[in-house]
Amino acid sequence: MTQEEYATFESIEVSKEEILSCSYSSWYPILKNYTAKSRVIKPLPQTFLDYLGSDSIKLPPANNYDPELVINSDNEYSDWEDGEEADESHDNDDQNDQEDEEDTDANVKSITVEDFKDLHDQIIQGINDLGGAVTPKLNWSAPKDAKWIMPDNTIRCDHVNDIYLLLNTSDHIVDDLDYPFTGVDLEKGIDDDDEVKEKVEYELVLRKWLDVNPALEFRVFIKDNKIIGISQRDLNHYTYLESLKSEINDKIQSFVYETLIPELKDKLNLNKYIVDVYLPRPFNKAYIIDINPFSRKSSPLLFTWHELLLIDTFGDDEDNYELRLVNETNVGRFSKKEYSESQVPYDVVDASLNSQAMVELAREWDKLQMQQDQ
Rank of each mutant, 00 (worst) to 15 (best):
D121M: 15
I123A: 06
I248M: 10
L308E: 09
Y51L: 07
W27Q: 12
W80D: 11
W80V: 13
A36I: 09
S89L: 14
P143W: 04
T329F: 14
V196L: 03
K117R: 12
T239A: 07
D234L: 13
S355P: 13
S295Y: 06
N63S: 11
D152W: 06
D93T: 06
V349G: 00
K58I: 06
Q46K: 09
I127H: 10
A36L: 06
S56A: 09
Q372M: 07
I228T: 04
D103K: 07
P151V: 14
N213C: 12
A142R: 08
Q98P: 01
N168C: 10
V200D: 07
Y278A: 08
R296F: 08
V205Y: 10
E247V: 12
K137H: 06
V275N: 07
L301Y: 15
D105H: 13
P293V: 02
T313M: 02
A106N: 06
M1K: 11
M370N: 10
Y164I: 10
L31Y: 12
D319R: 06
D290S: 15
N320V: 00
F283K: 08
Y179A: 08
K37V: 03
I30E: 11
E341N: 04
T182W: 05
T2W: 00
I173L: 04
I71C: 13
L210G: 15
K144M: 13
L204N: 14
G131F: 05
V200M: 12
D224P: 10
I248W: 01
N225Q: 11
P214D: 07
N271G: 03
E360K: 12
L204Q: 10
S11L: 02
E322K: 14
W80I: 12
D171C: 02
K137E: 05
V220W: 03
Y77S: 13
I248R: 02
E85C: 03
F218L: 11
Q122F: 00
E17K: 15
N236Q: 12
S21W: 01
K208S: 13
L361N: 02
I227P: 02
L130E: 06
W148I: 04
E364P: 09
E338M: 11
T135L: 10
D224H: 15
S243W: 04
Y65D: 12
P282W: 03
Y339M: 09
